[in-house]
Structures are given as C-alpha cells and as structure tokens.
Simulated scan of single mutants.
Amino acid sequence: MCCGGGLVRDRYFDSLRVLAIIRVSVYHMFPFAVLELVFPSMGVMFALAGSLMANSLARGSSRYNVIFGRIRRLLPAYWVLGLFVVPAMLLLGWDERPALWHLTAWVVPFVSPPSSDVGLQAQEVIWYLVTYLWLVALSPVLLWLYRRAWLVTIVAPLALLLALTIWPAWPANPNFQDVGTDLLTYAGCWILGFAHRDGTLRKVSAGLVASLAVVCVGGALFWAHRHGALQDMPVAYGIYQIGFVLALLRWQPDMAWLTRRRGLDNWVTLINARAVTIYLWNNVAIALCFPIGDALSTWILGQTGEELSYCVIALALLTNAVLLFGWVEDLAAKRTLRFLPWPHPTPAKPAGRATVPSLSRRWNDPVPHYATTSPRPRL
C-alpha cells in the first residue's frame, strides 16, 4: 500500500469511527430509533475493526501476538471502568450477588458482566466489547474460511442465526444466547472488513455493490415494516447493517480536504486516540447528568433550558473522564502517555530536503470500540 493511498484510506476510517462514536453518544442521550437507522454505528465499527484485524494477521506476525495485542489495547480502559463501577455496586447495595464465574467478566468480558441497578448504565454498553473480543479470537479461523469461500463466509453467520431463530438450540444460560446472537449478527460486517482489506470488495463493480446495498437496506426495512421494530429482529438488523457497510467500504472518497483543515483533523485524531474511553464512559456521564442537573435546579431554565443543561453537564462529565482516564489507552497501545493527545503542530520542512510521511506517527490503530436488552437497542 502506497503512503499516499494508505494515509487517505486510514483517515477515511478514522472519520467513520468518529461519526460512529458521536452517533452512539447522541443516541444514548436521545434514544430515537431514527438515529440507529440513519447511521448504524456498530456494524460500521465492526467492519473497520475486521479490516484492521485482517491487516494485522497478514503482516506475518504470530496470530497469538496479534490477538493478544488487540485485547491488550482494550482491557486496561475496561478495568478502569470496573474499578469504579464494581465497588459502587457493592457499596450501594447489590441484592442478587452474581456467581463467581460471572463476576470474572468484569476482568475479561467473555459475556456481559453482571450488574445491579446502580451499575446498569455502565454495563449496558459492554456487549460491544464482548462481541469484539470473540471476533478477535475467532479471526484466524474466520480468515482461513474467508480465503477459501469468501461469499459463503460472509453470508453464513446470518444464515445460521436465521436457523437458530426458527429452531432455537441455544444453551440454557441466557448470557451465552446473547453472546451468540450478537456474534452472528455482526460477524458478516467483520468479514466484510476482510473483503475491504484484501481488495476483493474493490473488484466488485460499484453499481453492483450499490444495488446490493439498496436491496439489503430496503429489504430489511420492508420486513421490519411488516413484522415489527427492526432492532428487535437480529437477522433483519444484521442485513440492514451489511447494506450500509457494503456502501461505506466500497466508497473511497478523497480525504485530502481533512488534512488541510488542521483544527478538524486534530479533533479526528483526538477522538480516535480516546475512542475506548469515550465509548465506555459516555453512558455513565449521561446517567449522572440528570441527578446533578436536578440538584442544581436546572428546571428553573424552562424545558428547553433544562434539556440543554443536561447535555452540557453530560459533556462536561465525559470530558473529565477522558482527561482523567484517557491516558490508559496510551499505556495499552504502548504510546507516549499524554494527558490530552492533541497533535503538536507539524514542524516546517527544511528547505531542499524531501520527507516521507510516517504511518506510525499519525495513523496508529486505536481500538474503537464503541443497545436494548435481549432484544436490546443496537447502537
């Protein structure tokens, strides 16, 4: 991959990740179904992560090192959240104490961790990390299957989910059913990331990809119109998200305009460098903004003023969480620890010397990783 094309393409990925994180946070504050339909963030995030995972596995490094590296980037920020949430749940009352095996999910989220009412807002978003970790662990097998039958591998997870919807054969424990449903719903998006990374998607004509995208999105919406809410039907919702992912990964816009706007470009870099922290803490910030706003008597500002004040408080709380805990992402990624990862101004180039842009300097691969109960809203 050439430097120029790589930089532009990675910046497109960075921009998609920023849009996804912002949309998730806005949806948590204003849970309108239309936000999920306009931009299905989680399918997009899984596709981006799948593409980057395929790239890492293709470099020739040990698959175990690749898997460990991905997990290492994610878990420290998760542990920081747990260090606050778990003691709070224990101190403020946890009526139904979980089994020990389930409590260990606050260390490694192989299933969604247990929660009391106090910690529910923090726990609700962890399903994404659970699904991400399973897809990372399964990626060597999925990539092996993809290289032998790429189309079948993309379609198979949703086909299996459809079969299990018609003939349920899940384990008795609902935690494992939730994991399996999420895994099969988003595996197709993850594998489409493989198709983007190796160029298979670019070999398909833009017209055909556009037609498939329209069929997937339109078909899923039609099915939901006839049978209920789209988010309550994992198979239809998975097809809907695949339609968006097909279009977004096949499209390769010129992102040079972003690099010329240093202020906006810096914000994209900042949000990518703190993506995990933003994702993990945004719901907590939103949950806390209401009692804080009520304590400050924001109701005297009128209905509109009160709503705006809640948003300002939530944003302030999230900003503080990023400032206080975001450096953990630098530690996990083995980067220089920075309180605020705002890019330094690019120094002027010495006259008469040609420089080659460094991919590692700006295009590090931060793990993003960006919602109703079963069925629960998918962000």
Rank of each mutant, 00 (worst) to 15 (best):
A371C: 15
Y78A: 03
L7M: 08
Y64F: 04
P350D: 04
L160S: 09
L288S: 06
H344M: 13
P157Q: 09
G82K: 02
W299H: 14
L288D: 01
Y279W: 05
P98S: 01
W127K: 06
R197S: 04
L129T: 03
V66I: 07
S62K: 05
C289S: 15
V34F: 11
S41C: 12
Q252I: 03
A351C: 06
G50I: 02
L16Y: 03
K334T: 14
V18I: 08
V8Q: 04
T269F: 13
K334N: 15
D178S: 13
V18A: 11
R59E: 13
S25M: 10
L129A: 01
W167D: 11
V179P: 00
F30K: 06
P377R: 08
P291I: 07
M89I: 14
T269N: 14
G263M: 09
V18P: 10
L57M: 08
G326H: 06
P113V: 04
A122E: 06
A333L: 15
W170D: 11
I300A: 10
E36A: 11
F339L: 15
L379A: 14
P368L: 14
Q241R: 09
V141H: 07
R97D: 06
L221F: 08
A287C: 09
A149W: 04
T153P: 00
Y128C: 00
A33R: 09
R147N: 05
A220I: 03
T259C: 11
G199V: 07
G93C: 06
A77P: 14
F194K: 02
L138F: 12
I154G: 02
I313K: 01
L92P: 07
W150S: 09
Y64Q: 05
A159C: 13
V217N: 04
D254I: 04
V215A: 01
T269Y: 14
T336C: 13
H28L: 12
L142T: 02
D14T: 11
W79R: 07
A156G: 05
G180N: 00
V367Y: 00
P253T: 11
G4Q: 10
P157G: 07
L133Y: 01
A88T: 11
Q303Y: 08
K334C: 14
A316E: 13
S25A: 13
T355P: 02
S41Y: 03
Y12S: 08
W190V: 08
A172F: 15
P343E: 02
V367E: 00
F176E: 04
S297F: 10
S211P: 00
R23G: 10
G243F: 01
A156M: 12
G50R: 02
H225K: 07
S115R: 06
P114T: 02
L221A: 05
L315H: 03
N173M: 11
T185S: 10
G352P: 03
Q303D: 13
N266Y: 14
S112W: 03
I292G: 14
D265C: 11
L120M: 09
L91E: 03
A99G: 12
L323K: 06
P357N: 08
L359Q: 15
L16F: 05
A77S: 14
